[in-house]
Design a protein around this nucleic acid. Structure first.
Lengths: 136, 136
DNA sequence: ATCAATTCTTGCAATCATTATAAAATTAGA
DNA sequence: TCTAATTTTATAATGATTGCAAGAATTGAT
């Protein structure tokens, strides 16, 4: 189940996703920039390498990656969605001042789920909000 | 710090929010309907009682309530924001099939936060996704 | 109670992220 | 190389949220 992201192309193939040029570039970008980018950030940064790139492609690609279980969708923001390469389980901390999003280790399985008998839990998310050290 | 929601009007006053007719009705609605409504649901349901109601008022009011610490903003959905009266800490479970959102008890303080020294944590959120018993 | 000043509500226009769609480009297999 | 399927692109459409300006309601001082 664990995916190796050493080679973007083979990671895509292992998930039955055709490794097109754009898809490889987007995945490479997500591996290098584990900063929970928005669609617009990905688009802006990749335009240099791929001048003909369309924002639709980013949307299509991210939706495909999420369905294939390669990435996770983060919805801390009220307006904009962010994306995260699937690594070990971790929580997200959002600074309400500067907007930065940090990762932190968290043992999600330690969370009590007594109320959830009969539910099929497929994804566990933890996010905190507050002020980061830089802004304090 | 704990708010009593027995009387909406006094709850508003205790948080330094002027208890206008619309605000009282919105707060009453949130107390009665602890089902994480969207802006549109609140608007549709309150239009019967307040024919002149505007959706802007709902947005203004909810923003004000959130700033006053009366409600919490839930961003599980990718597109629409939901709102929740502040009660005890609880997690949210979203069924990916029917879209319903359930509450479940969770001990958020049991979560390890070792990585977050130097951070000022103001809000802790836990949400799961999966399939609910009705849809299984 | 009256009047002026402030605050709240309303309606509509503007914004912005996301989705839909159809045409053009690319790729895979014969 | 040729054809069919897939992918990318560009543009238009959608839909939630915000901005703004005018009207309505409320407060406090006289």
């Amino acid at each position: 189940m664990k995916i190796s992201f050493d080679d973007p192309s083979t990671a895509l193939i292992s998930r039955k996703v055709r490794p097109s040029y754009q898809r490889i570039k987007v995945l490479e970008y997500l591996i290098k920039n584990q900063c929970h980018p928005t669609v617009d950030q990905i688009f802006q940064d990749l335009q240099g390498e791929i001048p003909t790139l369309s924002k639709s492609t980013i949307y299509n690609t991210l939706k495909l990656f999420a369905a294939a279980g390669l990435i996770r969708v983060i919805t801390i923001e009220e307006n904009e969605t962010r994306y995260d390469i699937l690594t070990e389980d971790h929580g997200h901390f959002k600074c309400e001042k500067c907007g930065a999003i940090y990762n932190f280790a968290v043992d999600v399985d330690a969370l009590a789920t007594g109320d959830l008998t009969g539910f099929k839990v497929m994804e566990k998310n933890v996010y905190f909000k507050g002020i980061c050290p830089k802004c304090l």
